[in-house]
Amino acid sequence: MNQLELANAIAQELQIGGYDADRFLKVTLEKIISVVTSNQPVELQGFGTFAMRPNAPRTGTSPATGEPFNIPARWSASFKIDKAFKERVEAVPLDTSSPSVTPVAVSDIIAPGDKPYYFTVQFSDDIGIKASTIGGKNSELGELDVRVTGPNGFNQLARATRTKATADKKGRIVTYAVGAPGGVWDFTANGQYQIDLLEA
């Protein structure tokens, strides 16, 4: 849920206009930021506490050169979850079932060429799917979790190139790409191909 969706949900719950709900939300967030950056905590009962905390100066190491460098003292924002909020989070049952997978757009290649072949797959779940997990275990979009096999020993891991949420926001529609066998789609690549989802 993004800020606009949250404002719309508030408007529906309070039976007020969307503009008023959006403005209420923006003013609330800005006030929290204003108070916290004046070094005063904001305590919201049943939710948590926003505050600033100081970080002492320290020495870091450059990942490029391995050379040490000084990191000056600075402030950082912190949030401590309220006990009631934490208990509600911990009470949510874990989703241990795998999502279902359905090909959405798989078409024939009717002309020779060397461009990748794109196909679309829909991941569905009754609770929801974390977008960053698409593409392989604990990986971001672009990693490999779908294998395509076909004639003449074709065996290639497809690369996820784009993802978008389904209408109910619980699933994901993902576009994958595979390269042409031998660098070109021609008559030698004719045949039936199979798409398999790899286990996490």
Rank of each mutant, 00 (worst) to 15 (best):
I71S: 10
L157V: 09
F85Y: 08
T133E: 05
E199Y: 09
Y19D: 12
I71K: 04
S100V: 12
A160K: 06
S98G: 09
R53S: 13
A167N: 14
T149W: 05
A180S: 02
R58I: 07
A165E: 15
A11Y: 00
Q45A: 13
Q122K: 14
A11N: 03
A105L: 13
D126E: 12
E140R: 14
T96S: 13
A200Y: 08
I10F: 05
A167C: 05
I134K: 00
D196I: 05
V92Q: 02
D108A: 15
G17K: 09
R162C: 07
S100A: 13
Q156E: 15
V146M: 02
P68Q: 07
P72Y: 08
A84P: 01
S124R: 03
E43L: 11
F24P: 01
D114E: 12
E13T: 15
A167R: 14
P72R: 05
L141N: 04
T149I: 10
K86R: 14
M52G: 06
D22K: 11
A158I: 09
K169I: 03
P99C: 05
F50G: 04
D168P: 05
D82A: 15
T61R: 14
N138L: 05
V184Q: 00
P151G: 04
N8A: 08
D95A: 14
I134S: 02
T96Y: 08
D168L: 08
R147P: 01
K115H: 06
Q194Y: 11
V106W: 03
G18A: 10
R58K: 11
S124N: 11
E13F: 04
G48R: 00
G150M: 01
Q3R: 15
T166R: 02
D196T: 15
R58A: 00
R88T: 04
V35C: 04
V104R: 02
S132W: 12
D22V: 06
V106N: 04
T37S: 05
Q3C: 12
I32D: 02
L94I: 13
E87W: 01
L144A: 05
I33D: 10
D196A: 08
T166S: 11
K137W: 09
A165K: 15
P181V: 01
A56Y: 10
N2A: 08
T59Q: 07
A84K: 11
G153F: 03
V35F: 01
A11L: 06
A9K: 15
L6G: 05
M52F: 09
S124Q: 04
Q156R: 12
K115F: 07
P68K: 11
R172C: 02
R53Q: 12
F69R: 14
Y176A: 05
D196H: 03
L94E: 15
Y193H: 07
T163P: 03
D126Q: 10
A9C: 08
P112Y: 13
I32Q: 04
